[in-house]
Computed example of a mutant assay.
Amino acid sequence: MGDTGEGLVSIGELARRSGLSVRTIRFYCDEGILESRRSAGGHRMFDSASATERLVLVRRLRALGLGLGSISAVLRGERSIEEVVAAESARLDVEFRALAWRRASVRAVENAGPAQRAERLALLAAAQDGGAAHDCLVRFWQRILAPVPRSDLDIWLYWNVPEPPADPSVDEVVAYAELAALVDTPGLNSAVRQQYWRHRPESIRDRRGLYADVGELLTDVVPLVSAGVPPRAGIELDRFVNAHAGARGESDSPRFRTQLLTDATDTDHRIHRYWALTGQLLGPRVTVGPTHHWLYDALVRTTDTSE
């Protein structure tokens, strides 16, 4: 049975015209994607033009990997083709990023020497997903910089916290996994808080103001670090001390400068390792780590701690 002459075709003829199997067409009928009528003999019959056009569209969308839910939404007019294709593209981006991360992790373990392999395997197994590792870094800095409002942190996080590479190399995936492991190290949170807020952070009256003043200062120190200027006395160091003094309701003095060095954690090897790895991932961008350490070195070189 083919064309009835009334614009209706049998399922066999529809299969021939659309390039789909009879079994697939029956499945689409059962799923509500395609409508049919019944002949006097009980056979499925289809409108020749609309059914063929509909099935060709379904076949093409399926070739792009779209699911039946998305295709049904298009056929019902609930979503446009552009919308479902954009959604599928975004989904594939996420999937490919995950696969790229796994590929780099597998190669990192494969390339490790026998003595390193077990340690590297443990490191990478703990950071199976780049997005999750990035979230750990963000939460770490949110705790460090609290109670600064989240709205004030966005630029800071963008500039200083590397995004997981979309297609990481072996070195990049290892570096990122190590960063995630570092922020989970016991005691690092308190060490970095001490470095950032300095001596007796509980005495700070205006933490938000201190954050803003130091942030502006660090931006001005970036060119000095980039140019290789040695840490020194001068306006940058004075601004650093005055920012901390003002936030505590005090004034700059030799005694206060000595206090800023009390219990300093700036030489903690974990902090230096963190910023070294960050620099490896961000490239030539100068982050807050080297600039903050430049000010610390300037303070050490110009402060008499023997008093």
Rank of each mutant, 00 (worst) to 15 (best):
L217F: 08
Q116H: 10
H134L: 11
E202R: 03
A63S: 15
A177F: 01
R205K: 13
V109M: 11
A108C: 13
V286Q: 08
Q116I: 05
G215F: 03
D30M: 07
M45D: 07
W294I: 00
P230H: 10
V174W: 10
A177T: 01
A86N: 13
G69H: 11
G5A: 05
V109D: 04
L224Y: 08
G42M: 13
A51V: 06
W101F: 08
V221D: 03
V94G: 06
E163G: 14
E95F: 12
A126E: 15
S89K: 12
D304G: 12
G67W: 07
G209T: 09
S190W: 08
A146V: 00
E95H: 12
D152F: 04
P223K: 09
G234Y: 05
P114F: 14
A90V: 12
A112Q: 04
E178I: 01
G215Y: 03
Q259L: 14
G234C: 08
G187K: 04
T185V: 12
R248A: 10
A40I: 12
R139I: 04
P231A: 07
V148K: 02
R38F: 04
R59A: 14
G234T: 09
L224S: 08
S48K: 02
A49C: 07
D206V: 03
L237K: 03
I25P: 01
F27I: 14
L75K: 07
W101H: 06
N160D: 00
D135H: 10
T262V: 13
G289H: 01
E53C: 08
T267P: 03
S105C: 12
A125I: 15
L34V: 13
D93H: 13
Q280L: 14
L64F: 09
L260N: 00
I81M: 12
E95P: 02
R208S: 06
G67T: 10
N160M: 05
G32K: 11
V170M: 00
L182D: 00
V221G: 11
T258I: 15
I25F: 06
T302M: 03
L260R: 01
I144T: 04
A276L: 12
D266F: 02
V286Y: 05
A87Q: 06
I33N: 00
R62A: 10
R200P: 01
A227M: 04
A132E: 13
R107K: 12
M45P: 01
L188T: 03
P186G: 07
G77N: 02
D154T: 15
I204D: 01
I25C: 02
A86K: 11
L153D: 05
P290M: 02
A115H: 13
R255F: 11
L157A: 03
L179I: 03
R208G: 14
V94H: 09
V225L: 02
A177S: 04
A98P: 07
G246V: 09
R150Q: 15
H293F: 13
T267Q: 14
D213M: 02
Q194Y: 08
A247Y: 10
Y274N: 00
R205H: 08
S251I: 13
D30G: 07
S70W: 01
E216C: 13
R193P: 04
R232N: 10
S21L: 09
L34K: 00
S10Q: 11
G42Y: 11
G187R: 07
S70N: 09
E250C: 10
R117V: 05
D263Q: 03
T4W: 06
R143M: 03
T219N: 11
D266V: 05
L157I: 14
G246A: 12
